[in-house]
């Protein structure tokens, strides 16, 4: 089930132009600032927004092609959509909400109910089956909404900030759940870590257009706009935590401020790392010596790529480059405060 999309659409005077392809079974993350047109993009795929020009093909089926006057309504597209507003039906129980899609696909009431219960179990809401949506907390409603979309077993699953309201722990569970789905997924997110963990392909949207597309690591390494650089440029390293000590897979050990156990992800901003020529004697808990890779000016700052033992990106001023003699192949010391590290369960 692949996606081929060339989208030109206007909603409320705001126009978007976006084209992308997604191979079957992959996850495409759409990131970008508020008002970039991400939701409009997803609504166009769902059929809630009509194309002015372009074409959308889902698994070889043309679902929107204004030039040929072809437009398949949302209910006949092989999709399910989960919106950040959840939009649970207030007059139906949580279980009936989740069973709604399966019922519409022709499943008998009993089978639909069973599938709803399976999905509620998966998102950890088994006990909430009989409740009304108004009785759920924000996070529970989000999980119920997600279960409702997933229970349709669509070939294309459209997710509009589906994880935003979840607490850290549940978020990890749901992320694993989403990663395991066989559907082709298109996911809007504000969370760069989520985007990089889930996505096979990243689309960066700004002011209605896709400004960058590619594999997440590639985009993070070479952000083309300040917004992308600021949000996606974070360094992300994986390892195993034991209390506040994290043994990174690359061999380096880092001290963090958040005690955790098991597989984790450590994130830190390129601006949080300080470089020096000699071993620093600072309050920073983490220091290591590294080889300088590339040195790349980027506007009024310079991005320095550090090699092993901890590959990461560091922002420094142009003056610092000269003072420290930073160039490819030279060596330097890096230091990083424990409080600058964000630790997440992997």
């Amino acid at each position: 089930m692949s996606i081929h999309a060339e989208i030109q659409a206007t909603v409320g005077g705001f126009a978007i132009r976006a084209a992308f392809d997604a191979p079957a079974g992959t996850c495409t993350a759409v990131v970008g600032p508020n008002g970039a047109g991400k939701t409009t993009l997803i609504h166009a795929l769902a059929g809630l927004v009509a194309l002015e020009r372009g074409k959308i093909v889902l698994a070889g089926q043309v679902v929107d092609d204004p030039a040929r006057r072809r437009r398949v309504p949302p209910e006949r597209r092989p999709i399910a959509l989960h919106s950040q507003h959840n939009l649970l039906f207030p007059h139906l129980s949580v279980a009936d909400n989740v069973a709604f899609g399966p019922r519409c696909s022709g499943l008998a009431a009993r089978a639909a109910r069973r599938r709803a219960e399976e999905w509620l179990e998966k998102v950890g809401l088994a006990e909430a089956a009989g409740l009304r949506p108004a009785q759920l907390s924000g996070g529970q409603a989000q999980r119920a909404g997600l279960a409702r979309a997933a229970a349709c077993q669509p070939e294309v699953l459209l997710l509009d900030e589906s994880l935003a309201a979840l607490d850290a722990e549940t978020r990890t569970d749901v992320r694993h759940l989403l990663a395991d789905l066989s559907a082709t997924r298109v996911l809007i997110t504000h969370d760069p870590v989520e985007a990089r963990l889930l996505a096979d392909q990243l689309l960066v949207m700004e002011t209605g257009e896709i400004v960058q597309a590619g594999a997440p690591e590639e985009v993070a390494a070479n952000p083309r706009t300040p917004w992308t650089a600021g949000l996606l440029g974070v360094n992300l390293l994986s390892g195993r935590a034991a209390g506040t000590e994290v043994a990174l897979d690359c061999g380096l050990a880092l001290t963090t401020a958040t005690p955790m156990t098991g597989p984790v992800l450590v994130a830190f901003s390129p601006a949080a790392v300080t470089l020096s020529t000699a071993e620093p004697h600072t309050s920073a808990r983490n220091t290591w010596e590294a080889e300088v890779g590339r040195v790349q000016p980027e506007g009024d700052r310079v991005k320095v790529f550090l090699g092993p033992p901890a590959p990461c990106r560091v922002w420094v001023t142009p003056q610092a480059v000269g003072e420290l003699g930073l160039e490819a192949g030279s060596r330097c010391w890096a230091s990083l405060k424990a409080t600058e590290l964000t630790v997440r369960q992997a």
Binding site: L48, E75, H85, L87, F89, F100, C104, A149, L158
Partner: peptide, 27 residues
């Protein structure tokens, strides 16, 4: 009535009559 509820039903595979019968009229 929030029209987004009806749109949501459509994205879950409900045709016009199903939306009317199961969402719009009950609400």
């Amino acid at each position: 009535l929030d029209p987004r509820l009806e749109s949501a039903a459509a994205t879950l595979g409900a045709g016009r009559w199903t939306v009317l019968r199961r969402i719009t009229l009950p609400l």
